[in-house]
Amino acid sequence: MNLSSRELVHVIRHLANALWEAKLKIVLVIPPAISAGTNQPGMFGKQDFEQLAPVVDAFSLMTYDFSNQHRPGPNSPIPWIQACVQTLDPDAVWRSKILLGLNFYGMDYGILGGTAEPIVGHR
């Protein structure tokens, strides 16, 4: 099923209202507002954020895994994270509802890219 942005916002609004009636909260996980490694807008932007901010308790912004095996580098560069937040809420009206997804691991990339492995405690 292919939902338009407007239909998806409508569904989330109804879901939020139902959860509020049940005395529950809604945290919506959203992709970055800027595609990693580009200046291109992501799948979820300012307009989507503004429409849902009044009815969603919090947004979990997926600001991790910026790099990949074809473009190794930092997991989440701070300027990119800031740009993602500022793109969604440039006037800081709803910024207190944004939860940053932070990675607590690193990735070990080969010299020529290729397969990446997480760097965990024993390494």
Rank of each mutant, 00 (worst) to 15 (best):
P77E: 11
A18G: 13
Y105M: 11
M107W: 07
G121C: 11
V27T: 14
D89S: 06
R71M: 10
N2M: 02
T115R: 04
L52M: 03
I98E: 06
T38N: 06
G110V: 01
T87N: 12
T63L: 06
L19H: 10
I34P: 05
G113H: 07
L102E: 14
S5T: 14
F49H: 01
V93W: 06
H122S: 11
V120K: 11
D108G: 01
V9R: 15
I34F: 03
V55L: 09
Q82V: 13
N103Y: 00
M1I: 02
P79D: 10
I111E: 12
I12W: 07
L19D: 05
A33S: 15
Q40F: 07
H70M: 07
L24E: 11
D48W: 04
D57P: 01
P74K: 13
R71A: 12
R13V: 11
I78G: 05
D108T: 03
T87V: 03
N39K: 11
V9Y: 00
A58R: 15
P77S: 13
M1L: 10
A18P: 00
P77T: 08
Q51W: 07
N39C: 11
Q51P: 04
A92R: 11
M62K: 06
G42D: 12
E7A: 12
V55Y: 08
I111Y: 03
S5G: 13
N2H: 09
H10W: 13
L88S: 06
A92D: 13
G37Y: 07
T38M: 02
S96E: 14
P72A: 07
L99G: 00
D108M: 10
I119N: 00
N103D: 15
N75G: 14
V55R: 04
Y105H: 06
Q82D: 12
V55K: 02
S4W: 08
G101V: 04
P77N: 09
G114M: 00
L28N: 08
V93S: 13
V55P: 01
S35L: 12
N75M: 11
T115C: 04
P74Y: 09
D91F: 08
F44I: 09
K25V: 02
L3D: 01
L100P: 05
K46N: 12
P72C: 08
M43N: 12
M1C: 08
G110F: 00
R6Q: 14
D91H: 10
H14C: 10
Y105S: 10
F66V: 01
G110R: 07
N2G: 13
A83R: 13
W80K: 05
L52C: 03
Y109S: 12
G42T: 12
D57G: 12
